[in-house]
């Protein structure tokens, strides 16, 4: 019984983790840009949902629909105006660029929202679903379903649509894609926009669950790194699998070795993966 509850906890947590990592993985995989901004985008999405709810009573699920186009535009513009200028430079330079932008964004949020922890508390709360003695918090369950839906949509977009195929083509071979008439710069901007969209859309989900602070960005970013290595870079299903795996491993780790070792365990796993299967669980084959 306890094991089932722990498994359920791990799966719903994993859904959130997948949500955190999907956009990050996409941008890293396709653009070869390590987007340090990703964590702060999530936090910003969280604040958007918090204030929308506190000021106007807008439900965080609705906020997702507001956040998605806004963050897509933000990401698109950022890539077009700034990051595209550096895109051919070594990865350390683009990392520095996004690191600098992240400093500006997180400190800007610090000034705008203060460092006090805020929490989006729904009134009335969504409650708890009891499945034969296994408690499943409805907000997490929703978040997991939405995370799955968002990642699923992203997957469909990449595998079915013209623009998605172009993104995958650029990911596989930039020169060849350009020769085939793909506008590489535009594809880069769209990809970065999608990554930002995923971050901004997961913000409202996470705001219902975790306290929000301008400085929680790096925590999410750290998780995103682990999940990408677990699942394989640039692969949407990989982020899903990696997220779920991390959630379940952390949950059982806490049960078996005590909660203080749950994080140690996930990083041990990370090192083992890097040593023995550096391409991640899904490898490099399944790009989209």
């Amino acid at each position: 019984m306890l094991s089932l509850q722990i498994l359920a906890n791990g799966l719903v947590l994993g859904g959130l983790y997948a949500c955190i990592a999907a956009g990050f993985s996409l941008v890293w995989g396709v653009l070869n840009v390590i987007n340090i901004l990703h964590g702060s985008f999530i936090v910003l999405g969280g604040y958007l949902a918090y204030y929308a709810y506190a000021q106007f009573g807008i439900h965080p699920f609705v906020s997702i629909l507001i956040a998605a186009p806004l963050f897509f535009a933000l990401g698109y513009i950022l890539q077009r105006s700034l990051i595209n200028r550096m895109i051919a430079a070594p990865v350390l330079l683009t990392l520095s660029l996004t690191f600098g932008l992240d400093l500006m964004l997180s400190n800007g949020m610090l000034v705008a929202f203060t460092a006090d922890f805020k929490k989006l508390t729904l009134d009335p709360p969504l409650g708890v679903l009891n499945l034969g003695g296994i408690a499943l918090p409805v907000d997490r369950l929703f978040a997991m379903v939405l995370a799955l839906a968002l990642t699923g949509l992203l997957y469909l977009l990449l595998s079915r649509s013209r623009i998605g195929r172009a993104i995958v083509a650029v990911r596989m071979d930039r020169e060849a894609a350009a020769l085939m008439g793909v506008n590489v710069k535009r594809i880069y901007a769209v990809t970065f926009g999608l990554g930002a969209l995923m971050a901004g859309a997961s913000g409202p989900l996470l705001a219902m669950i975790f306290p929000i602070s301008p400085l929680s960005g790096p925590v999410y970013l750290g998780k995103a790194f682990v999940i990408c290595v677990l699942g394989g870079l640039g692969s949407v299903p990989g982020a899903m699998i990696g997220g779920l795996a991390l959630g379940v491993v952390e949950s059982f780790g806490a049960l078996w070795f005590g909660p203080e070792h749950a994080i140690t365990l996930s990083f041990t796993l990370l090192i083992l993966m890097l040593l023995f299967r550096p391409t991640g669980l899904l490898g490099r084959t399944g790009y989209a």
């Binding site: 509850q5 906890n9 925590v219 959630g247 049960l255």
Partner: peptide, 20 residues
């Protein structure tokens, strides 16, 4: 009696054990 690490994002496992 258990400890959790600084920076822990999820307490569901520990709390499930406490509930038990």
């Amino acid at each position: 009696f258990e400890k959790y690490a600084i920076g822990t994002l999820d307490h569901a496992s520990a709390l499930s054990q406490i509930k038990a």
